[in-house]
């Protein structure tokens, strides 16, 4: 995607995938990311939480799409064709995260993950497991397992 951040010489490292939600930087571990799709219209599901935008067709597989902005407590993303859907694999579930845009793939040291400062929204806090500070910006590490509590929880 672009050049990677200069790796430091010590400590276990990992690659993170950064994206933008509500004009702020977020990231998830790269191993969860399957692919990135352009925004597409989804089919609304009844009896589901509001943050489930609907279902999309990923080459014949039915994939639910989650509005990450709404899920993080930042309000509904006014989806435009410039939004993107990150196809994410968590355990054996495949879901789509609707985000404002994707940024970069970065290599960070695991030790760089700092606890979340106690200033953000409570909803955000429960879904963010820490932050990375990279030069001038703050990247929030999203806990994908929290985003998808479990199958029944999501569908309830």
């Amino acid at each position: 995607m672009s050049e990677r951040a200069a790796a430091k010489a010590h400590g276990p490292r990992r690659e993170i995938f950064t994206f933008v939600v509500g004009d702020a930087g977020y990231c998830i571990e790269i191993e969860h990311v399957l692919e990135i799709r352009a925004w597409t219209e989804t089919t609304t599901m009844p009896q589901t939480p509001e943050y489930v935008t609907g279902l999309m067709n990923l080459r014949g597989i039915v994939v639910p799409v989650i509005d990450l902005s709404l899920r993080l407590g930042l309000g509904r993303a006014a989806a435009t064709p410039r939004h993107v859907i990150i196809i994410v694999r968590v355990s054996d579930q495949t879901v789509g995260f609707l985000v404002q845009g994707v940024s970069d793939i970065l290599t960070v040291e695991e030790g760089d993950l700092k606890p979340v400062p106690r200033v953000s929204l409570p909803a955000t806090q429960s879904f963010v497991k820490g932050v990375y500070t990279l030069s001038d910006q703050l990247i929030r590490a999203v806990d994908v397992h929290q985003i998808l509590p479990d199958r029944d929880g999501m569908a309830a």
């Binding site: 279902l55 495949t94 569908a155």
Partner: peptide
Amino acid sequence: GLEQNFGQVPGIAAATILGDGRIAL
């Protein structure tokens, strides 16, 4: 099937993909 990626939804048996590529329940 929806169960794999979504779980059971009351009132919905499954989904299908229509000729235009969109999903219908």
